[in-house]
Simulated assay, not measured.
Amino acid sequence: MGKEKFTYVGREVSISTDFDNGALARVEEEKTNIFDLWPYEDEEYRDGYIYLRSVTGTGWDLANFCFHFRLEGCKGKEIEFRFHIKEREKEGDVSIVYANPDFPVYSYDGNHWMRMENKSLSQESLIEGGQTISVRQTYTKETAYIAYQYPYSNSHLESFVQRALKSPFCRVETAGESTEGRPIKQISITDYDVPIKEKKVVWFIGLQHPAELGAGWGLEGIIDYLLSGSSVAKKARENFIFNVIPIVNVDSVAEGRGRIHSSGRNLNREWERPDPVLEIRTIKRRLDEWKAEGNPIDIFIDFHGFSSRDGRWHLALLPEDAYTGKQKTEYSRLVENIKERIPTAASSLHEHRWMGLSMVNRRRENTGSLNILRTRQDNM
């Protein structure tokens, strides 16, 4: 259930979602350059949550709040946007979206983003039981992009890939195609002069949930570092091969969906299904082919992008008893190394319901501590 691409022509400016990652449900111009915006249609708000019907018919799947649109003809104009929202949880009358300092952001080129500081919150809304977040901004160029947070799109990844390919340590291939025929990019980084048999193998994937933007930016930062001239990066390339799939849910990223796949299914819940969607089948086949060629998989990390409100990072691992022999020893060493190298790491393992193999989350820039979570393999 996606949002249709459209262009709204206003009195002086136009608003469009007709580009990669563009998304917005509806626009109305109340007065010249004063716009009411709906990130989701009214009927998608249910019981205080933004929900979309699951294709499996088992219930409703939470859709993360997101939008991204292009503004044309805005140079020299002060424009007000009134976002009508209804959140799944609030702290009293405080909107969590409003309290986020990175909501919203704008850019003149789609790459360099700035915060929109002039914003206000009203308890009145055109959505029953909702709130309105108003932002005002005067623009200095004819075209601007406005987004919920710093977007990570397929087109941005393609530009990054072209830059990364200038390094002799980087190779890029297509792991497969998405449900709608888009390529799923795989980036491999290593020192190719050192035989693979002598290396540990790490797999990273990200953006199963498109609105969890930190996963894309985090993986890009990791790739940048691994390709750098740092002595640590050089040693990593000599001793490891890193296979990275930055965007798994490429269709939903293109269409600006918040969390779910174009089929309405949650990719992060597809791994144990007998009939997973094509994207998950593709990655599982890729991993099977890799192992069939005699290559190991020493670490597999699935990056997500949300965290607790107090700024903690989360690294979720399978329970210790899931490992045996050498793997169990290496698991214990990994946990101790994390605690030793990150002073704010939790002093003990915490049991958690998540089934994902590994997850790293961050809430605010330059803040955060680490919790190591031992997952239970029960049903979600």
Rank of each mutant, 00 (worst) to 15 (best):
A164Y: 09
I280F: 12
W271G: 11
Y8S: 09
R53H: 09
E320V: 13
F306G: 12
G110V: 12
R376Y: 05
G294L: 00
S167M: 12
G356M: 14
T58Q: 01
V360N: 11
E330H: 02
T329C: 04
Q327A: 06
K3L: 15
V55C: 02
N371F: 13
E336K: 02
T329G: 01
K291C: 02
R115A: 13
A144N: 04
Y45W: 13
G216A: 03
S95G: 02
N379L: 13
E91M: 07
N64R: 09
V161N: 08
E28W: 03
Q186Y: 01
C74Y: 07
N379E: 14
L287K: 05
F83W: 12
V244H: 00
T329E: 14
I189T: 01
I222A: 09
P276N: 08
Q137N: 12
H304C: 13
I15Q: 03
C66N: 13
L349Y: 09
K234F: 00
Y40V: 08
R273T: 13
H314K: 06
A316H: 11
E29S: 04
H314F: 09
Y108I: 10
N111A: 04
C74V: 15
I34F: 10
F67M: 15
I79H: 01
N361Y: 05
E351S: 09
E330Q: 04
T140F: 14
Y51T: 09
H304Y: 13
E12D: 10
I127D: 06
F83E: 03
W217P: 03
S14T: 15
A254F: 15
N154L: 14
R362H: 13
W313P: 02
W38H: 02
Q186M: 06
R171S: 02
A211F: 03
P246L: 08
K166Q: 10
V55K: 15
W203S: 04
P343V: 08
A254H: 15
I260S: 12
G258Q: 10
F242M: 01
S155A: 14
N100L: 11
E43P: 00
Y45E: 08
R70Q: 15
